[in-house]
Design a protein around this nucleic acid. Structure first.
Lengths: 234, 234
DNA sequence: GCCTCGGGGAGTGTATACAATCATAGCGCG
DNA sequence: CGCGCTATGATTGTATACACTCCCCGAGGC
Protein backbone atom coordinates (compact mmCIF):
# COMPACT_ATOMS: atom_id res chain seq x y z
CA UNK A 1 0.00 0.00 0.00
CA UNK A 2 1.50 3.28 -1.08
CA UNK A 3 0.75 6.83 0.00
CA UNK A 4 -0.12 9.04 -2.93
CA UNK A 5 2.18 11.74 -4.20
CA UNK A 6 2.52 14.60 -1.82
CA UNK A 7 0.72 17.74 -2.90
CA UNK A 8 -0.19 20.43 -0.42
CA UNK A 9 2.22 19.34 2.26
CA UNK A 10 5.07 21.31 0.81
CA UNK A 11 3.23 24.54 1.30
CA UNK A 12 3.09 24.14 5.06
CA UNK A 13 6.68 23.03 5.52
CA UNK A 14 9.69 25.15 4.76
CA UNK A 15 11.93 22.24 3.87
CA UNK A 16 11.44 19.04 1.95
CA UNK A 17 12.76 17.25 4.96
CA UNK A 18 9.93 18.50 7.14
CA UNK A 19 7.37 17.74 4.46
CA UNK A 20 8.75 14.23 4.03
CA UNK A 21 8.73 13.71 7.78
CA UNK A 22 5.09 14.70 8.03
CA UNK A 23 4.08 12.71 4.98
CA UNK A 24 5.79 9.49 6.02
CA UNK A 25 4.58 9.77 9.58
CA UNK A 26 1.09 10.41 8.30
CA UNK A 27 1.41 7.38 6.05
CA UNK A 28 2.36 5.19 8.98
CA UNK A 29 -0.25 6.48 11.39
CA UNK A 30 -3.01 6.34 8.81
CA UNK A 31 -2.25 2.71 8.16
CA UNK A 32 -1.14 3.13 4.57
CA UNK A 33 2.29 1.89 5.58
CA UNK A 34 1.72 -1.16 7.72
CA UNK A 35 3.92 -2.42 10.56
CA UNK A 36 6.62 -4.70 9.27
CA UNK A 37 6.52 -3.21 5.82
CA UNK A 38 9.84 -2.17 4.36
CA UNK A 39 10.44 1.43 3.41
CA UNK A 40 12.64 1.87 0.36
CA UNK A 41 14.17 5.31 0.29
CA UNK A 42 14.09 5.71 -3.45
CA UNK A 43 10.48 4.63 -3.59
CA UNK A 44 9.43 7.15 -0.94
CA UNK A 45 11.42 9.83 -2.70
CA UNK A 46 9.70 9.03 -5.97
CA UNK A 47 6.26 9.23 -4.33
CA UNK A 48 7.05 12.59 -2.83
CA UNK A 49 8.79 13.66 -6.01
CA UNK A 50 11.93 14.70 -4.24
CA UNK A 51 15.39 13.21 -3.91
CA UNK A 52 16.61 10.70 -1.37
CA UNK A 53 18.52 13.25 0.69
CA UNK A 54 15.64 14.92 2.56
CA UNK A 55 13.86 11.57 2.77
CA UNK A 56 16.82 10.06 4.55
CA UNK A 57 16.93 12.90 7.03
CA UNK A 58 13.24 12.47 7.75
CA UNK A 59 13.71 8.74 8.18
CA UNK A 60 16.57 9.33 10.60
CA UNK A 61 14.22 11.32 12.80
CA UNK A 62 11.42 8.79 12.58
CA UNK A 63 13.88 6.10 13.50
CA UNK A 64 14.93 8.10 16.52
CA UNK A 65 11.29 8.46 17.48
CA UNK A 66 10.82 4.72 17.41
CA UNK A 67 8.31 4.50 14.60
CA UNK A 68 10.63 2.79 12.17
CA UNK A 69 13.62 0.53 12.69
CA UNK A 70 16.64 -0.14 10.50
CA UNK A 71 18.45 -3.37 9.84
CA UNK A 72 21.96 -2.51 8.85
CA UNK A 73 22.31 -2.46 5.09
CA UNK A 74 19.08 -4.35 4.79
CA UNK A 75 16.51 -1.62 4.91
CA UNK A 76 14.08 0.27 7.11
CA UNK A 77 10.86 -1.21 8.41
CA UNK A 78 7.80 0.17 10.10
CA UNK A 79 8.10 -0.88 13.73
CA UNK A 80 6.24 -3.91 14.96
CA UNK A 81 5.90 -3.33 18.67
CA UNK A 82 5.74 -6.27 21.01
CA UNK A 83 3.00 -6.50 23.62
CA UNK A 84 5.59 -5.90 26.32
CA UNK A 85 6.64 -2.66 24.67
CA UNK A 86 3.08 -1.43 24.46
CA UNK A 87 2.49 -2.27 28.10
CA UNK A 88 5.58 -0.24 28.87
CA UNK A 89 4.14 2.71 26.96
CA UNK A 90 0.91 2.47 28.91
CA UNK A 91 2.86 2.42 32.12
CA UNK A 92 4.70 5.55 31.08
CA UNK A 93 1.42 7.27 30.32
CA UNK A 94 0.06 6.22 33.68
CA UNK A 95 2.81 8.22 35.32
CA UNK A 96 2.27 11.31 33.24
CA UNK A 97 -1.41 11.60 32.36
CA UNK A 98 -2.82 12.28 35.82
CA UNK A 99 -0.20 14.93 36.29
CA UNK A 100 -1.25 16.59 33.06
CA UNK A 101 -4.94 16.30 33.81
CA UNK A 102 -4.47 17.92 37.19
CA UNK A 103 -2.54 20.81 35.79
CA UNK A 104 -4.89 21.20 32.87
CA UNK A 105 -7.71 21.67 35.38
CA UNK A 106 -5.77 24.59 36.77
CA UNK A 107 -4.46 26.26 33.67
CA UNK A 108 -6.61 25.39 30.65
CA UNK A 109 -7.78 28.41 28.69
CA UNK A 110 -11.23 28.54 27.09
CA UNK A 111 -9.64 27.99 23.68
CA UNK A 112 -7.82 24.93 24.93
CA UNK A 113 -11.01 23.56 26.45
CA UNK A 114 -12.75 24.09 23.16
CA UNK A 115 -9.97 22.19 21.39
CA UNK A 116 -10.38 19.27 23.76
CA UNK A 117 -14.13 19.27 23.21
CA UNK A 118 -13.63 19.36 19.46
CA UNK A 119 -11.25 16.40 19.61
CA UNK A 120 -13.82 14.38 21.54
CA UNK A 121 -16.57 15.26 19.09
CA UNK A 122 -14.32 14.36 16.21
CA UNK A 123 -13.68 11.03 17.88
CA UNK A 124 -17.39 10.35 18.16
CA UNK A 125 -17.89 11.15 14.51
CA UNK A 126 -15.13 8.72 13.63
CA UNK A 127 -16.78 5.98 15.67
CA UNK A 128 -19.97 6.36 13.66
CA UNK A 129 -17.98 6.07 10.45
CA UNK A 130 -15.99 3.17 11.92
CA UNK A 131 -12.92 5.16 10.96
CA UNK A 132 -10.37 3.56 13.22
CA UNK A 133 -7.36 5.55 12.06
CA UNK A 134 -9.35 8.76 12.43
CA UNK A 135 -10.47 7.77 15.89
CA UNK A 136 -6.96 7.04 17.01
CA UNK A 137 -5.86 10.38 15.60
CA UNK A 138 -8.57 12.18 17.54
CA UNK A 139 -7.34 10.45 20.66
CA UNK A 140 -3.83 11.68 20.05
CA UNK A 141 -5.17 15.18 19.56
CA UNK A 142 -7.03 14.95 22.84
CA UNK A 143 -4.07 13.73 24.83
CA UNK A 144 -1.69 16.21 23.22
CA UNK A 145 -4.23 18.95 23.80
CA UNK A 146 -4.41 18.08 27.47
CA UNK A 147 -0.64 18.29 27.64
CA UNK A 148 -0.81 21.65 25.97
CA UNK A 149 -3.49 22.85 28.34
CA UNK A 150 -1.31 21.74 31.22
CA UNK A 151 1.21 24.27 30.03
CA UNK A 152 4.00 21.77 29.58
CA UNK A 153 5.00 21.22 25.96
CA UNK A 154 7.69 18.76 26.97
CA UNK A 155 5.30 16.37 28.65
CA UNK A 156 2.71 17.00 25.95
CA UNK A 157 5.08 15.89 23.23
CA UNK A 158 6.13 12.90 25.26
CA UNK A 159 2.57 11.74 25.65
CA UNK A 160 1.86 12.40 22.01
CA UNK A 161 4.77 10.26 20.89
CA UNK A 162 3.73 7.48 23.19
CA UNK A 163 0.22 7.60 21.81
CA UNK A 164 1.60 7.44 18.32
CA UNK A 165 3.48 4.28 19.08
CA UNK A 166 0.52 2.70 20.82
CA UNK A 167 -1.71 3.57 17.88
CA UNK A 168 0.87 2.11 15.54
CA UNK A 169 0.46 -1.15 17.40
CA UNK A 170 -3.30 -0.95 17.38
CA UNK A 171 -3.29 -0.46 13.62
CA UNK A 172 -1.96 -4.02 13.39
CA UNK A 173 -5.04 -5.18 15.25
CA UNK A 174 -7.32 -2.84 13.40
CA UNK A 175 -9.95 -5.43 12.69
CA UNK A 176 -10.22 -6.27 16.38
CA UNK A 177 -10.93 -2.68 17.44
CA UNK A 178 -14.70 -2.47 17.61
CA UNK A 179 -17.08 0.43 18.02
CA UNK A 180 -17.88 -0.33 21.65
CA UNK A 181 -14.22 -0.15 22.57
CA UNK A 182 -13.87 3.21 20.89
CA UNK A 183 -17.01 4.53 22.54
CA UNK A 184 -15.74 3.53 25.95
CA UNK A 185 -12.50 5.34 25.36
CA UNK A 186 -14.28 8.44 24.19
CA UNK A 187 -16.58 8.39 27.21
CA UNK A 188 -13.56 8.46 29.45
CA UNK A 189 -12.07 11.30 27.49
CA UNK A 190 -15.25 13.26 27.94
CA UNK A 191 -15.30 12.57 31.66
CA UNK A 192 -11.76 13.90 31.98
CA UNK A 193 -12.70 16.90 29.90
CA UNK A 194 -15.66 17.67 32.16
CA UNK A 195 -13.51 17.52 35.26
CA UNK A 196 -10.99 19.85 33.66
CA UNK A 197 -13.71 22.25 32.53
CA UNK A 198 -15.18 22.16 36.03
CA UNK A 199 -11.76 23.03 37.45
CA UNK A 200 -11.71 19.90 39.55
CA UNK A 201 -8.05 18.79 39.57
CA UNK A 202 -8.53 15.80 41.86
CA UNK A 203 -11.33 14.38 39.76
CA UNK A 204 -9.38 15.02 36.56
CA UNK A 205 -6.33 13.20 37.89
CA UNK A 206 -8.43 10.31 39.20
CA UNK A 207 -10.25 9.95 35.91
CA UNK A 208 -6.98 10.11 34.00
CA UNK A 209 -5.58 7.24 36.05
CA UNK A 210 -8.76 5.29 35.49
CA UNK A 211 -8.56 5.97 31.78
CA UNK A 212 -4.96 4.81 31.56
CA UNK A 213 -5.69 1.59 33.41
CA UNK A 214 -8.90 0.99 31.60
CA UNK A 215 -7.23 1.49 28.23
CA UNK A 216 -4.52 -0.93 29.18
CA UNK A 217 -7.10 -3.54 30.12
CA UNK A 218 -8.95 -3.08 26.85
CA UNK A 219 -5.66 -3.48 25.11
CA UNK A 220 -4.76 -6.61 27.05
CA UNK A 221 -8.10 -8.17 26.15
CA UNK A 222 -7.38 -7.34 22.53
CA UNK A 223 -3.85 -8.58 22.16
CA UNK A 224 -4.07 -11.96 23.80
CA UNK A 225 -2.42 -13.79 20.94
CA UNK A 226 1.30 -13.37 20.62
CA UNK A 227 1.33 -12.80 16.91
CA UNK A 228 4.87 -13.03 15.58
CA UNK A 229 6.29 -11.87 18.85
CA UNK A 230 9.74 -13.00 17.90
CA UNK A 231 10.37 -10.37 15.26
CA UNK A 232 9.32 -7.31 17.19
CA UNK A 233 11.23 -4.64 15.37
CA UNK A 234 12.45 -2.00 17.74
CA UNK B 1 35.98 26.10 20.75
CA UNK B 2 36.23 23.04 18.57
CA UNK B 3 36.06 19.37 19.44
CA UNK B 4 39.10 17.46 18.20
CA UNK B 5 38.96 15.07 15.33
CA UNK B 6 37.02 11.96 16.09
CA UNK B 7 39.09 8.85 16.59
CA UNK B 8 37.73 5.87 18.41
CA UNK B 9 34.09 6.81 18.10
CA UNK B 10 33.76 5.21 14.70
CA UNK B 11 34.62 1.83 16.08
CA UNK B 12 31.58 1.76 18.35
CA UNK B 13 29.08 3.03 15.81
CA UNK B 14 28.13 1.21 12.66
CA UNK B 15 27.42 4.32 10.66
CA UNK B 16 29.07 7.69 10.37
CA UNK B 17 25.74 9.21 11.18
CA UNK B 18 25.65 7.56 14.57
CA UNK B 19 29.26 8.45 15.26
CA UNK B 20 28.63 12.06 14.30
CA UNK B 21 25.51 12.14 16.48
CA UNK B 22 27.44 10.90 19.49
CA UNK B 23 30.40 13.17 18.85
CA UNK B 24 28.38 16.34 18.40
CA UNK B 25 26.15 15.57 21.37
CA UNK B 26 29.22 14.88 23.42
CA UNK B 27 30.70 18.16 22.25
CA UNK B 28 27.62 20.05 23.36
CA UNK B 29 27.22 18.34 26.72
CA UNK B 30 30.90 18.60 27.55
CA UNK B 31 30.76 22.32 26.98
CA UNK B 32 33.11 22.40 24.01
CA UNK B 33 30.26 23.74 21.91
CA UNK B 34 28.64 26.49 23.91
CA UNK B 35 24.97 27.53 23.86
CA UNK B 36 24.34 30.10 21.19
CA UNK B 37 27.33 29.02 19.16
CA UNK B 38 26.71 28.35 15.51
CA UNK B 39 27.36 24.92 14.07
CA UNK B 40 28.64 24.98 10.53
CA UNK B 41 28.03 21.68 8.82
CA UNK B 42 31.16 21.72 6.74
CA UNK B 43 33.27 22.58 9.75
CA UNK B 44 31.85 19.73 11.79
CA UNK B 45 32.32 17.39 8.85
CA UNK B 46 35.93 18.45 8.53
CA UNK B 47 36.56 17.85 12.22
CA UNK B 48 35.09 14.39 12.04
CA UNK B 49 36.77 13.80 8.71
CA UNK B 50 33.59 12.75 6.99
CA UNK B 51 31.25 14.44 4.52
CA UNK B 52 28.32 16.71 5.26
CA UNK B 53 25.72 14.04 4.54
CA UNK B 54 25.94 11.97 7.75
CA UNK B 55 26.59 15.15 9.72
CA UNK B 56 23.33 16.63 8.49
CA UNK B 57 21.42 13.52 9.45
CA UNK B 58 22.91 13.64 12.92
CA UNK B 59 22.05 17.31 13.22
CA UNK B 60 18.48 16.62 12.16
CA UNK B 61 18.14 14.25 15.09
CA UNK B 62 19.75 16.61 17.56
CA UNK B 63 17.43 19.34 16.37
CA UNK B 64 14.47 17.06 16.96
CA UNK B 65 15.79 16.38 20.46
CA UNK B 66 15.89 20.06 21.21
CA UNK B 67 19.61 20.46 21.73
CA UNK B 68 20.16 22.58 18.65
CA UNK B 69 17.90 24.92 16.75
CA UNK B 70 17.94 26.01 13.11
CA UNK B 71 17.25 29.39 11.63
CA UNK B 72 16.12 28.86 8.08
CA UNK B 73 19.01 29.28 5.68
CA UNK B 74 20.97 31.02 8.39
CA UNK B 75 22.50 28.14 10.28
CA UNK B 76 22.20 25.88 13.28
CA UNK B 77 22.87 26.99 16.81
CA UNK B 78 23.32 25.24 20.11
CA UNK B 79 20.10 25.88 22.03
CA UNK B 80 19.97 28.63 24.59
CA UNK B 81 17.16 27.61 26.88
CA UNK B 82 15.17 30.23 28.66
CA UNK B 83 14.59 30.00 32.39
CA UNK B 84 10.93 29.25 31.73
CA UNK B 85 11.86 26.31 29.57
CA UNK B 86 14.14 24.89 32.22
CA UNK B 87 11.45 25.26 34.84
CA UNK B 88 9.18 23.35 32.52
CA UNK B 89 11.75 20.56 32.27
CA UNK B 90 11.99 20.38 36.04
CA UNK B 91 8.23 20.18 36.26
CA UNK B 92 8.22 17.31 33.80
CA UNK B 93 10.81 15.49 35.86
CA UNK B 94 8.77 16.04 38.98
CA UNK B 95 5.98 14.05 37.42
CA UNK B 96 8.18 11.19 36.34
CA UNK B 97 11.00 10.79 38.82
CA UNK B 98 9.01 9.63 41.85
CA UNK B 99 7.28 7.11 39.65
CA UNK B 100 10.64 5.78 38.51
CA UNK B 101 12.11 5.75 42.00
CA UNK B 102 9.16 3.78 43.33
CA UNK B 103 9.37 1.19 40.61
CA UNK B 104 13.12 0.98 40.86
CA UNK B 105 12.71 0.07 44.52
CA UNK B 106 10.63 -2.88 43.37
CA UNK B 107 12.52 -4.10 40.37
CA UNK B 108 16.16 -3.01 40.51
CA UNK B 109 18.61 -5.87 40.03
CA UNK B 110 21.89 -6.03 41.94
CA UNK B 111 23.76 -5.00 38.80
CA UNK B 112 21.52 -1.97 38.36
CA UNK B 113 22.00 -1.00 42.00
CA UNK B 114 25.73 -1.26 41.50
CA UNK B 115 25.49 1.01 38.45
CA UNK B 116 23.61 3.62 40.48
CA UNK B 117 26.20 3.43 43.23
CA UNK B 118 28.98 3.79 40.69
CA UNK B 119 27.35 6.87 39.18
CA UNK B 120 27.11 8.49 42.61
CA UNK B 121 30.73 7.73 43.38
CA UNK B 122 31.75 9.09 40.02
CA UNK B 123 29.82 12.24 40.82
CA UNK B 124 31.69 12.63 44.11
CA UNK B 125 34.99 12.24 42.36
CA UNK B 126 34.00 14.93 39.90
CA UNK B 127 33.11 17.29 42.74
CA UNK B 128 36.61 16.94 44.16
CA UNK B 129 38.07 17.72 40.76
CA UNK B 130 35.56 20.57 40.31
CA UNK B 131 34.73 18.90 37.01
CA UNK B 132 31.31 20.39 36.36
CA UNK B 133 30.67 18.75 33.02
CA UNK B 134 31.68 15.40 34.47
CA UNK B 135 29.44 15.90 37.46
CA UNK B 136 26.47 16.73 35.30
CA UNK B 137 27.19 13.65 33.21
CA UNK B 138 27.26 11.47 36.32
CA UNK B 139 23.90 12.91 37.27
CA UNK B 140 22.48 11.98 33.89
CA UNK B 141 23.85 8.47 34.29
CA UNK B 142 22.20 8.21 37.70
CA UNK B 143 18.81 9.37 36.53
CA UNK B 144 18.92 7.25 33.41
CA UNK B 145 20.05 4.30 35.49
CA UNK B 146 17.09 4.75 37.79
CA UNK B 147 14.82 4.74 34.78
CA UNK B 148 16.48 1.60 33.58
CA UNK B 149 16.16 -0.03 36.99
CA UNK B 150 12.47 0.87 36.95
CA UNK B 151 12.16 -1.35 33.91
CA UNK B 152 10.81 1.36 31.67
CA UNK B 153 13.19 2.37 28.89
CA UNK B 154 10.68 4.86 27.52
CA UNK B 155 10.54 6.90 30.71
CA UNK B 156 14.24 6.42 31.23
CA UNK B 157 15.06 7.98 27.90
CA UNK B 158 12.61 10.77 28.52
CA UNK B 159 14.26 11.67 31.80
CA UNK B 160 17.68 11.38 30.25
CA UNK B 161 16.82 13.82 27.48
CA UNK B 162 15.35 16.26 29.95
CA UNK B 163 18.49 16.08 32.04
CA UNK B 164 20.55 16.71 28.95
CA UNK B 165 18.67 19.89 28.21
CA UNK B 166 18.84 21.07 31.80
CA UNK B 167 22.55 20.42 31.87
CA UNK B 168 22.93 22.29 28.63
CA UNK B 169 21.44 25.28 30.39
CA UNK B 170 23.61 24.85 33.44
CA UNK B 171 26.71 24.81 31.26
CA UNK B 172 25.93 28.43 30.47
CA UNK B 173 26.07 29.17 34.19
CA UNK B 174 29.03 26.89 34.71
CA UNK B 175 30.94 29.37 36.81
CA UNK B 176 28.03 29.77 39.20
CA UNK B 177 27.79 26.05 39.94
CA UNK B 178 29.82 25.56 43.08
CA UNK B 179 31.01 22.50 44.94
CA UNK B 180 28.45 22.76 47.73
CA UNK B 181 25.64 22.74 45.23
CA UNK B 182 27.01 19.62 43.59
CA UNK B 183 27.53 17.93 46.93
CA UNK B 184 23.94 18.60 47.92
CA UNK B 185 22.68 17.08 44.72
CA UNK B 186 24.84 14.03 45.16
CA UNK B 187 23.69 13.58 48.76
CA UNK B 188 20.12 13.45 47.54
CA UNK B 189 21.05 10.95 44.87
CA UNK B 190 22.60 8.76 47.51
CA UNK B 191 19.53 9.02 49.72
CA UNK B 192 17.34 7.89 46.84
CA UNK B 193 19.76 5.10 46.09
CA UNK B 194 19.66 3.88 49.69
CA UNK B 195 15.86 3.82 49.69
CA UNK B 196 15.87 1.83 46.46
CA UNK B 197 18.49 -0.56 47.76
CA UNK B 198 16.45 -0.98 50.95
CA UNK B 199 13.41 -1.80 48.84
CA UNK B 200 11.45 1.07 50.33
CA UNK B 201 9.28 2.40 47.47
CA UNK B 202 7.52 5.08 49.51
CA UNK B 203 10.74 6.56 50.78
CA UNK B 204 12.29 6.40 47.33
CA UNK B 205 9.36 8.25 45.79
CA UNK B 206 9.31 10.83 48.56
CA UNK B 207 13.04 11.46 48.27
CA UNK B 208 12.74 11.72 44.49
CA UNK B 209 10.11 14.41 44.84
CA UNK B 210 12.26 16.21 47.37
CA UNK B 211 15.24 15.97 45.02
CA UNK B 212 13.29 17.37 42.09
CA UNK B 213 12.00 20.31 44.10
CA UNK B 214 15.30 20.91 45.80
CA UNK B 215 17.11 20.90 42.46
CA UNK B 216 14.64 23.35 41.07
CA UNK B 217 15.19 25.68 44.00
CA UNK B 218 18.95 25.49 43.64
CA UNK B 219 18.47 26.29 39.99
CA UNK B 220 16.20 29.23 40.73
CA UNK B 221 18.75 30.66 43.15
CA UNK B 222 21.36 30.29 40.43
CA UNK B 223 19.57 31.81 37.48
CA UNK B 224 18.18 34.95 38.95
CA UNK B 225 19.49 37.16 36.21
CA UNK B 226 17.64 37.01 32.95
CA UNK B 227 20.67 36.92 30.74
CA UNK B 228 19.75 37.55 27.13
CA UNK B 229 16.33 36.11 27.66
CA UNK B 230 15.06 37.54 24.41
CA UNK B 231 16.98 35.27 22.11
CA UNK B 232 16.19 31.95 23.73
CA UNK B 233 16.77 29.59 20.84
CA UNK B 234 14.29 26.80 20.87
C1' DG C 1 27.72 62.11 6.75
C1' DC C 2 23.95 58.84 5.90
C1' DC C 3 21.32 55.98 3.09
C1' DT C 4 20.74 52.90 -0.90
C1' DC C 5 22.12 49.52 -3.85
C1' DG C 6 24.62 45.93 -5.99
C1' DG C 7 28.40 42.20 -5.78
C1' DG C 8 30.85 38.74 -3.61
C1' DG C 9 31.17 35.18 -0.27
C1' DA C 10 29.55 31.95 3.04
C1' DG C 11 26.45 28.33 4.05
C1' DT C 12 22.30 25.91 3.81
C1' DG C 13 18.97 22.88 1.13
C1' DT C 14 18.65 19.60 -2.47
C1' DA C 15 20.10 16.54 -6.14
C1' DT C 16 23.08 13.32 -8.12
C1' DA C 17 26.94 10.13 -8.31
C1' DC C 18 29.66 6.46 -6.45
C1' DA C 19 30.94 2.48 -3.52
C1' DA C 20 29.95 -1.30 -0.62
C1' DT C 21 27.02 -4.96 0.73
C1' DC C 22 23.28 -8.02 0.85
C1' DA C 23 19.67 -10.91 -1.39
C1' DT C 24 18.36 -13.69 -4.94
C1' DA C 25 18.29 -16.40 -8.93
C1' DG C 26 20.58 -19.24 -12.11
C1' DC C 27 23.84 -22.79 -12.81
C1' DG C 28 26.80 -26.60 -12.15
C1' DC C 29 27.89 -30.52 -9.44
C1' DG C 30 27.41 -34.26 -6.44
C1' DC D 1 16.83 -33.95 -6.99
C1' DG D 2 19.14 -31.14 -3.56
C1' DC D 3 23.06 -28.24 -2.38
C1' DG D 4 26.57 -24.80 -2.86
C1' DC D 5 28.60 -21.16 -5.64
C1' DT D 6 28.73 -17.23 -8.42
C1' DA D 7 26.86 -13.29 -10.82
C1' DT D 8 23.65 -9.84 -11.08
C1' DG D 9 20.48 -6.62 -9.33
C1' DA D 10 18.64 -3.88 -5.69
C1' DT D 11 19.38 -0.81 -1.88
C1' DT D 12 21.80 1.35 1.55
C1' DG D 13 25.68 4.47 3.21
C1' DT D 14 28.58 8.15 1.87
C1' DA D 15 30.57 11.71 -0.97
C1' DT D 16 30.31 15.34 -4.16
C1' DA D 17 28.08 18.82 -7.00
C1' DC D 18 24.84 22.46 -7.70
C1' DA D 19 21.47 26.20 -6.76
C1' DC D 20 19.54 29.45 -4.00
C1' DT D 21 19.33 32.64 -0.22
C1' DC D 22 20.97 35.67 2.99
C1' DC D 23 24.49 38.63 4.99
C1' DC D 24 28.17 41.83 4.74
C1' DC D 25 30.66 45.43 2.76
C1' DG D 26 31.95 48.95 -0.23
C1' DA D 27 30.74 52.38 -3.82
C1' DG D 28 27.89 55.89 -5.25
C1' DG D 29 24.13 59.29 -4.76
C1' DC D 30 21.69 62.77 -1.95
Amino acid sequence: MLPPIDTQLFEKALTFREAAYQAIKQGILSGQLEPGQSLVEERLAAMLQISRTPVREALAILEHEGLIAPIYRRGLFVCKLSRAQVVELFTANEAVEPFLARRAAFYATPEQLAALDAAINDGEACVERLDIAGFLRSGRVFHAGMGHAAGNPTLARFVERNEERVDLFLMSYGKAVDAEMMRASNREHRAIYRAIADRDPDAAARLAIYHAQSTRERFAALATDGGDESESLT
